[in-house]
């Protein structure tokens, strides 16, 4: 969680900026759309912003994204609030997203959520006091044949048992790193993103 200079509950410091790598990547992606249609890059650029700024989108972050895409801030707010992968308030370094739908539910997703809640001492939607984990439940992640499952950052953890899930969470805790959907390494080495 970022320092809170503005005094508002959920905010970032003013004048935040992408790293050079992130800015270069955003500009590369913007070129994929026809002249004047750079707004199309909003979803990928918001993913990058979430990685750059602590895993969530503050008003300051969204305003900054609007300035990069040369659109009005409201155009970013209305999009960011529509898509479930964007967090509009601070989250832990590691967001656990447990699939709760259909086949995962048939295979015990509710029990898995209860197990994680007990292990971490939080309930769904909460963040652990040390700021390490946030627990979310999400809708179908197209991993129904390997249910139950959870996503952490880019990684699908599938065919989970309580033991397996516990071990995985311990590993993330030991590493203590921020884990994002769009991995930091991907931003640093974006050679696989073609022009």
């Amino acid at each position: 969680m970022q320092s809170n200079s503005s005094g508002s509950k959920y905010s970032h410091k003013k004048n935040l900026k992408f790293s050079d790598d992130a800015l270069a990547l955003a500009q590369k992606i913007m070129k994929r759309y026809p002249e004047g249609k750079q707004k199309s890059a909003i979803l990928p650029v918001l993913h990058i912003a979430q990685t750059e700024f602590d895993g969530w989108l503050s008003v300051e972050t969204m305003d900054y994204v609007a300035s990069i895409l040369n659109i009005q801030p409201i155009e970013v707010y209305e999009v960011a609030s529509f898509y479930s992968m964007f967090n509009l308030k601070p989250v832990g370094k590691c967001v656990i997203e447990v699939c709760r739908t259909g086949p995962c539910w048939l295979m015990g997703a509710e029990d898995l959520v209860k197990f994680i809640e007990k292990k971490l001492g939080i309930t769904e939607g909460q963040t652990t006091p040390d700021g390490m984990f946030t627990l979310k439940t999400v809708e179908c992640l197209a991993s129904c044949g390997t249910a139950p499952m959870m996503q952490i950052g880019e990684t699908y953890h599938e065919n989970l048992t309580f033991d397996k899930c516990g071990t995985i969470l311990d590993e993330y805790k030991n590493k203590g790193e921020q884990v994002s959907h769009f991995r930091t390494e991907r931003i640093k080495h974006h050679s696989d993103i073609h022009q």
Partner: peptide
């Protein structure tokens, strides 16, 4: 082009709106 979590974008005109950078 990557989405950001919305079942409705599987509907083809919802997908087109999303590709244009909208809800």
């Amino acid at each position: 082009h990557c989405g950001a979590g919305a079942y409705i974008c599987g509907e083809e005109t919802g997908l087109i709106e999303s590709l244009e950078g909208k809800r």
